[in-house]
Simulated scan of single mutants.
Amino acid sequence: MNAPGIDIPDRRGRTGLERHGRDLTGNPRVRITDVEVLSCDWYVLRKTTFDYQHSDGHWSREQRENYDRGDGATILLYDTSRRTVLLTRQFRLPAYVNGHPDGMLLETAAGLLDGDSPEEAIRREAAEETGHTVGRAEHVFDSYMSPGSVTERLHFFAAPYGQATATTDGGGIAAEGEDITTVELPFDQALTMIRDGAILDAKTIMLLQWAALDGPFRPA
């Protein structure tokens, strides 16, 4: 039987998806024994079976599902002269079905790398989503956002914006179903919105707090 993503290309042209992770040798307490592809409609959901040696020396057989959507990048756009930040607002179905009132989240611009370097990807995403063409972006840190189930590593950046960087209307890629608006906020208001729950997106909270502690709005 030919299975998409394994024996024959899936709709993104991929094969051999069941081999991912089988050759890892970095942790001698982990022995991967099987990788099963559960879904590869667009991203990839795998079930991995592995033997794990516990701290007391005994081994157990474990299974974990892990969702592979590729790595991504995000960026905080800031204006120190006016003490503002530029965020986006868009509909997020997972948040909507898990209790968010309308699914419309305030976020820093972000997207998947799609084969580009992290800085190339985030400059592309900033232009597509906000309409601002930023210069060199400052790499801030990296983070695994949900390491218990999602493989994605997110690269965090920051860059100034202003009238000179506004080159297009932004709004995202309509052909991909994106309908994004930009929201400019005073930085202090954005911090308050974290406290009162108006900003709930993790990457955005992390970048705003970085900006307050170590970034462009840190105390003198």
Rank of each mutant, 00 (worst) to 15 (best):
I32N: 04
R89Y: 01
D188Y: 03
D142T: 12
G26T: 01
N2T: 01
L207T: 05
D196E: 09
A137D: 02
L93M: 14
T108K: 04
F50T: 03
E36K: 13
A95M: 09
H100Y: 13
L45G: 12
S146E: 00
A166N: 08
R12K: 05
L112S: 14
S146C: 00
W59F: 13
E18C: 13
I205T: 09
T33K: 10
E152C: 07
R31I: 08
S39L: 07
P118K: 02
A166K: 14
R61I: 10
D142K: 00
R64S: 07
R64M: 04
W42K: 02
I194K: 06
L87S: 04
Y96A: 15
W210L: 07
A202D: 07
D56G: 12
G115H: 06
D188T: 10
Y43A: 11
Y67W: 14
A121E: 10
I194Y: 11
L106H: 14
R136T: 03
Q189D: 15
R14G: 05
E18V: 02
M104K: 07
G162R: 06
V85N: 11
A212E: 15
F187W: 12
G21K: 03
S117T: 15
R92T: 04
R89W: 03
P160N: 00
R29P: 01
A220D: 15
A159F: 00
V183H: 11
